[in-house]
């Protein structure tokens, strides 16, 4: 196969979980809610998707179950922060710790199970076309789904009435409440959407990308997705660009090893985390741009009477 096409395919495949998770978190944050539990929701999504795929034999059913599981875990976060007005940072951390524990616990019997995952498309004839065939038709079906999700989020946020209301809630919940919008309900919806997307990201990892279940397999991608939202200054297209950038960095470790360069694997495994730190510092440096782009009420609880 053409090496260039191969590289593009692998980069997109590695970046896709970040696209799902970061787009979901972007929508949540646009409503003014900061959910730091992405890592936990991804793990719960991954383990549930894998369990359902393994027992039912249908990977697609697994994907759906993973989305549902991610949304269900985000509901716990929503109940505690939106209805009970708890601190969003602490609750998000709790959600991540809870998700790590829960997924390790329920997934124990599935650690060495083998499943038939979702494999890249192969459309007879079309995928065999030189260069273009692989580039356009050779991806995993979920990669196309991530493109669709991007288009949906972009359209919803900036071209639909619902997106305008969502952004208004994130900028000034008091004003939105005064006009008569149900702030808490809208925030619940945004949190659930973020949870479903994180679940989908996890499901992609366990059912399509690897496909297997290992304790803690999300390996910090949830936190990287959170950093990506800041990196993207809350703009969907920049989330997409950032996700593929990080996909490429993740890939470097396999590429370098394949080339036979004698460098301990740990150095290369550090790369995505170090890259996140560097990129975050570079973007955050411009405090004005961050303040202008971040939803004004991000992280603050809303109580109608207050």
């Amino acid at each position: 196969m053409d090496t260039f096409a191969q590289l593009v395919i692998l980069t997109l495949a590695a970046g896709t979980p970040l696209v799902f998770a970061a787009l979901g978190e972007l929508v949540t944050e646009k409503s003014g809610v900061l959910n730091l539990g992405v890592e936990g929701m991804m793990l719960v999504g991954a383990v549930v998707a894998f369990m359902v795929a393994a027992t039912s034999g249908s990977p697609w059913l697994g994907i759906l179950a993973g989305m549902g599981a991610g949304a269900a875990t985000s509901l716990i976060f929503g109940a505690i922060t939106l209805s009970l007005l708890a601190n969003q940072v602490a609750t998000g951390l709790a959600l991540s710790l809870f998700g790590i524990g829960l997924s390790a616990f329920v997934g124990l019997d599935f650690v060495s199970v083998v499943i038939a995952g979702i494999t890249p498309l192969s459309i007879g004839g079309l995928s065999d076309l030189p260069v273009v065939g692989q580039l356009v038709f050779g991806h995993n079906p979920l990669v196309y789904l991530s493109f669709a999700l991007f288009a949906l989020v972009q359209w919803f946020l900036y071209r639909s009435r619902g997106g305008l209301v969502l952004r208004a809630v994130g900028e000034s919940p008091q004003s939105a409440h005064a006009i008569g919008y149900p702030v808490i309900a809208i925030r619940y919806a945004a949190v659930l959407f973020g949870g479903a997307c994180a679940g989908l990201a996890g499901a992609y990892l366990s059912v399509a990308y690897t496909p297997l279940w290992v304790e803690g397999m999300v390996a910090g991608r949830g936190w990287i997705a959170l950093a990506l939202v800041v990196f993207a200054t809350w703009k969907p297209w920049r989330v997409l660009a950032g996700a593929y950038l990080f996909g490429g960095v993740t890939l470097a470790q396999f590429q370098v090893q394949a080339l036979g360069v004698a460098i301990p694997s740990q150095y290369l495994s550090m790369l995505p985390y170090l890259a996140t730190i560097v990129v975050l510092a570079m973007i955050s440096r411009d405090a004005v741009a961050i303040r202008l782009n971040a939803p004004a009420s991000l992280g603050r609880p809303f109580h109608p009477a207050a």
């Binding site: 009970l84 709790a94 710790l97 809870f98 524990g101 829960l102 616990f105």
Partner: peptide, 22 residues
């Protein structure tokens, strides 16, 4: 029982604490 149950209880405890703090 798998010892991972510890992590589950740790997370649950923190959830209840944050909820009760309201």
């Amino acid at each position: 029982l798998p010892s991972a149950v510890t992590g589950l209880f740790q997370g649950t405890l923190l959830f209840f604490l944050l909820a009760a703090d309201v």
